[in-house]
């Protein structure tokens, strides 16, 4: 079994993989819109596709907040503590 070669095939066909992912993502949202949620503890649990929106937004928020924190406050050169 040559795992490396198998991975290489996947990498070489990444454009196909990407299309498969898009279909999968769309399918997920459609499924969430169709399948009724069994939960009603919070209002958003019954909003179809809210998870997709929240995940997408959360990713941007985390990266933006972290990078802002880094550049404004906590990033330092690698030899900061060495002097």
């Amino acid at each position: 079994m040559d795992l490396g070669r198998w991975l290489q095939v996947l990498v070489d066909n990444s454009h196909i993989l990407r299309r498969v992912m898009y279909v999968l993502l769309a399918g997920l949202v459609v499924a969430d819109l169709i399948i009724p949620s069994a939960y009603d503890r919070f209002p958003w649990e019954s909003w179809g596709g809210f998870g997709a929106l929240y995940g997408f937004a959360a990713c941007i928020v985390i990266i933006a907040v972290a990078k802002a924190l880094g550049y404004l406050l906590v990033y330092r050169g690698e030899d900061y503590y060495d002097e």
Binding site: M21, V29, S37, A58, I60, I63
Partner: peptide, 23 residues
């Protein structure tokens, strides 16, 4: 493994992945 949990988690993570590759 209820449909609600699985669908929520998959959407949450995979769409975060989309945003990751955009950034």
């Amino acid at each position: 493994y209820t449909p609600g949990h699985v669908l929520w988690e998959l959407q949450l993570l995979l769409f975060a992945g989309v945003a990751f590759f955009m950034l």
